[in-house]
Structure formats: C-alpha cells, structure tokens
C-alpha cells in the first residue's frame, strides 16, 4: 500500500512539474534547476536506500532481542 502511495506521489510530483510556473523556472537561469533536480533525485535515492537498510536492521535487532 505504501508503495502505491509513493508512486502516486511521484506521479503527482510529475504533474506539478508540468505547471507553467515550474516550466519557466526550469527553463530559466540557464536551466540550472534541472541540475538541482537531478542532484536531489540522487540524494533522495541514496537516503531511501539507507532508510530501507535501517528499517531492516531495526527489525533484526528486535527479533534477536525477543
């Protein structure tokens, strides 16, 4: 369920990015915000990976304790 919500959120984000204002922001300043979006995507991807390991580790710790 959470994954469905996450992908819905991603689609919504894409929709927002299509808006006119965002368009002019991304096209302006030599398109530097496209680079920013790319860097942020990588950042959140790595954080997501760390969060998954973190959660798995916590589960394991709990199971070992029980």
């Amino acid at each position: 369920m959470r994954k469905v919500k996450m992908s819905m959120g991603f689609l919504l984000m894409c929709q927002m990015l299509n808006a006119q204002e965002t368009q002019s922001l991304m096209e302006g300043s030599g398109k530097i915000y496209v680079v920013l979006a790319t860097v942020l995507a990588i950042y959140f991807g790595v954080i997501l990976f760390l969060t998954i390991i973190e959660r798995k580790l916590s589960n394991l710790e709990r199971q070992i304790k029980d």
């Binding site: 894409c14 990015l17 991304m26 096209e27 398109k31 496209v34 979006a37 790319t38 995507a41 990588i42 991807g45 790595v46 990976f49």
Partner: peptide
C-alpha cells in the same frame, strides 16, 4: 545487485529529468 538496481533506477529518473527540459519529454 540491490545497489546496482538503485543506481539503474536513479539513472532512469535523472535521465528523465534531463530529457524533460532538453529533448522535450520525460
């Protein structure tokens, strides 16, 4: 393989972002 797929998906996402504002579509 898990990290490889993470990098692959990130590669697709970053590529889509780049393509949106240079090739014209995600």
């Amino acid at each position: 393989a898990q990290v490889g797929i993470l990098y692959g998906i990130l590669g697709l996402v970053t590529g889509a972002i780049w393509a949106r504002w240079t090739w014209g579509d995600w």
